[in-house]
Design a protein around this nucleic acid. Structure first.
Length: 114
DNA sequence: CGCCTGACAGACT
DNA sequence: TAGTCTGCCAGGC
């Protein structure tokens, strides 16, 4: 069994990120809280930066609370990340920020009531 | 064990 | 609204 990420923190973070559905986004802080580590937004970002490709995590759906995209070097540029999100149905404001109020992911939305 | 770094967040000016 | 400062907490040295 390969070594990879043994840290429970990272594993828990990745588990939550993997559950983000297409067409939805979640902030770093939100992911941290849902994984059981409130106030660890920066660690979530660190985890994404070291996320092994094998996990196939939708890290492009994890954005900061302001709705702005990751730095240029990530995802091959913000335009690239934006394109991926738009393909999933995410909409943006004129200034380039994500329409957070409309796309932020809520666990409850996973429950099918109808 | 101490100090710096970071794909953040929220408060403050 | 934008720019700056401080708090977070694990990882790397």
């Amino acid at each position: 069994m390969p070594v990879e990420i043994n840290q429970k923190f990272f594993n828990d973070i990745y588990a939550v990120v993997a559950r983000i559905p297409a067409g939805k986004v979640a902030s770093y802080g939100q992911i941290g809280s849902m994984a059981g580590y409130p106030g660890s937004a920066r660690e979530v970002g660190y985890a994404m930066a070291h996320a092994p490709a094998k996990r196939k995590l939708p890290c492009h759906r994890v954005v900061n609370s302001q709705g702005t995209l990751a730095p240029e070097p990530v995802f091959g540029g913000q335009a690239r990340q934006r394109a991926m999100l738009e393909e999933e149905g995410i909409t943006f404001y004129m200034d380039g920020r994500i329409h957070m109020e409309r796309h932020t992911w809520s666990e409850y939305e996973q429950l099918s009531f109808f």
